[in-house]
Design a protein around this nucleic acid. Sequence first.
DNA 1: CTTCGTATTTTGTTGCAACAAAAAGTCGAT
DNA 2: ATCGACTTTTTGTTGCAACAAAATACGAAG
Lengths: 228, 228
Amino acid sequence: MMSRENAGGKIAVNPRLGEAAYEALRDRISRGVYRPGDKLTVRSVAETLGVSSTPARDAINRLTSENALVYAGPKTVIVPILSEADLKEVTVIRIALEGLAAEEATKHCGPLDVERLKALQIQINLGLERRDYASVLWHNKEFHFHVYAQSRLPRLVNLIDAQWLRVGPSFYGLYPEFAEERYGVRSHEMAMDAIEEGDSRALRAAFEADIRMGYLRLRSAVRARSSA
Amino acid sequence: MMSRENAGGKIAVNPRLGEAAYEALRDRISRGVYRPGDKLTVRSVAETLGVSSTPARDAINRLTSENALVYAGPKTVIVPILSEADLKEVTVIRIALEGLAAEEATKHCGPLDVERLKALQIQINLGLERRDYASVLWHNKEFHFHVYAQSRLPRLVNLIDAQWLRVGPSFYGLYPEFAEERYGVRSHEMAMDAIEEGDSRALRAAFEADIRMGYLRLRSAVRARSSA
DNA sequence: CTTCGTATTTTGTTGCAACAAAAAGTCGAT
DNA sequence: ATCGACTTTTTGTTGCAACAAAATACGAAG
């Protein structure tokens, strides 16, 4: 499991401040610290992370180049507010990449992986009951990426991670109403069944269904916001 | 068509040196100025591009974060030398992304696009006859990206571009022997036929075939090198 | 209350010097 | 010649100040 330490965002010991700042900022974005539309400045990030402006600027630039942050003006970078077209595009990209990862992962998944996924699903269900949505989102991501990691295609996983970072903040904005619907429970069960049967097509289909489900929810939220 | 000016790599007028340096360096890599294994340093790039070290460092960092350059040591970035596993991974990623782009593009392709592609194919054939391989590679890229652009999914096109940048230098290393085989001519004809008939599955298949063909060539080159 | 133009503040970018660490070069022993 | 330890050079990173430009705050006119 990924480390859950350092949740505040402060930089730990790392000889390369730029890299550390990048990871810390990425972590904050993926955890929902920022909301879509929030503005990030070099100096504010530098102060938050406890570094000087050079590594802070490095981190912001890098996140911007992968569209995890976007320009809202020549001197203004914000957490992206996804338009309906953006959402549609990121969804077809996710289906292509995550579908591929899931299919490739089937070859390398064993009973231990199913056990791990079951444990994660229990955590997800627990979070839903307790209305601990940060936990739900966290364990949901763990669930997906545990499978993707089995593809043994590390750059593909990085690419997928970058897409999640783009939609993450919008997802946070959706909770808590969103989570009430037990979103993802069914498709996760489909996924676990597919792995047990070694059916790569079914595993792909399960993740595709999961992504499409999330897309529909997010789209209706975007529409509700744009009409308001 | 993309601008072919500024081929030397010198920065033109651009208020943002970092962005300009990034584009100039990217351009040089995609044009085969560097060979796999070539070392790039902040100071050498700065001098070549005629900027100070900050924008040069920005450009290198950004290219490194998208794997167009890789670390060969803690203080050494080089143009990547793709292993067989790297090659395999980038190929499945390309098939997923470019297949998607091609399929989406079918909806928006018209007779004008076929005309454009035909003109580009003539340029490719001309380059092959004249053994002007830089021209072949250039027009081949134009051919592919003209189609991908019609998908109207700009981030997807960016993602594809990043993958091309990873394999580009290896492709250059392959020429000129490689080009003798009229690589790509048949799959390009398949692609143009598919567009004329509006057959999105066939268009996807044509580009997949093209990518797989290139993969096989590159793989045998990698094997030949690793045994030497 | 809204809108437009102006003044003030904030902000990104750039160049540069200092530092530590890594790479390249050197030379001697075997 | 080959290898290894040591010295020299090169290199990435960082912090910082200056500058130009954009964002913001403010206030006057409608």
